[in-house]
């Protein structure tokens, strides 16, 4: 299967990309690693008339410390994120989740920014970023702005990015030593998207939970926070009964899909089990 015809333009810089998007209007699409867009184009479910290629913007390919944050450039390959020493030291959750996206070949090409910008509720990195209260750095015609993860994901394949915006970087916090994390990805085959995924970031304090942030993958039209769980955990004892009780709130407010891998009902039940396991693992780290 071959995409419908399109015009191809290679961007030489972020500003060039913004300009090209402005020039070609709504029918233009950004492409980097192409692992979200090209499969849709091959099936002709997406048919942009112009592709603006930012694949070679190597100045956006980095993972570096920025004060109490880590900044990940948008064209950093998923494999580089997964293998990043900086992330291994300061935020292993991001590296772990990136290492479970797709397969090795996909991770060699697919970019971290591309995955985030695609806004797929079944994708792992957006959920992790939501749980981490990450910041998205966006360049557009009006210059640069920063968008909190909570405000970035707006719906099914829908983000805060305007038609001329380019996501340039993502900032995540350094996790303190008292903070445990987990990403539970439940799927039938290793290559599959998560039927349900759970990201947990848990701050411990003297045998209880000081603060927990829980993100859910594929439980609605966009990545979601399990706010009911988070509320139930605030100050709760870090013991199995309390964790299980809190995890019971996982499906609250979600609207999971039904598909050939699982019904909405099953996903709701699964989210409880996976949240509990994520909490147990996070607290054990």
């Amino acid at each position: 299967m071959i995409p419908a015809p399109f015009e191809y333009v290679r961007a030489e810089s972020v500003d060039h990309a913004v300009a090209l998007l402005g020039e070609h209007g709504e029918d233009a699409k950004l492409v980097a690693g192409g692992h979200s867009l090209l499969p849709l184009m091959r099936l002709r479910l997406a048919r942009p008339s112009v592709l603006v290629d930012v694949d070679r913007l190597d100045d956006l390919a980095y993972v570096r410390e920025a004060g109490d944050q880590i900044e990940i450039g948008a064209t950093t390959r998923m494999a580089e994120v997964a293998a990043s020493e900086v992330l291994a030291t300061h935020n292993p959750l991001v590296a772990h989740a990136a290492g479970h996206v797709g397969d090795p070949q996909v991770r060699h090409r697919g970019t971290f920014g591309g995955s985030v910008a695609h806004g797929d509720p079944a994708s792992d990195p957006p959920t992790v970023l939501l749980a981490l209260d990450a910041q998205m750095v966006v360049r557009g015609p009006a210059g640069e702005r920063t968008v909190a993860a909570r405000d970035f994901f707006k719906g099914l394949f829908e983000t805060d990015l305007g038609p001329q915006d380019v996501l340039t970087a993502v900032r995540v916090p350094k996790l303190s030593t008292g903070t445990g994390w987990s990403y539970q990805k439940f799927h039938r085959r290793a290559i599959d998207w998560a039927i349900v995924g759970v990201a947990a970031v848990v701050e411990r304090s003297n045998g209880s939970v000081a603060r927990a942030a829980i993100g859910l993958t594929n439980m609605g039209l966009m990545p979601m926070r399990a706010e009911g769980v988070e509320a139930a955990l605030a100050g709760a004892a870090a013991e199995p009964g309390a964790l299980a009780a809190a995890a019971g709130h996982a499906p609250e407010g979600t609207s999971p899909p039904s598909d050939t891998n699982g019904s909405a009902e099953y996903r709701r039940e699964l989210s409880k089990v996976l949240v509990r396991r994520a909490l147990e693992e996070a607290l054990a780290r």
């Binding site: 299967m1 192409g34 091959r42 397969d103 070949q105 996909v106 060699h108 090409r109």
Partner: peptide, 27 residues
């Protein structure tokens, strides 16, 4: 396949394995 799933098309680009069905020749 048409969906970057099967890996039959795997080649190396700059030494790394990639699925050549999900990359443009231009890239």
């Amino acid at each position: 396949c048409d969906t970057s799933t099967c890996g039959a098309c795997t080649v190396h680009v700059d030494g790394q394995s990639v699925k050549s069905c999900t990359m443009l020749a231009a890239q």
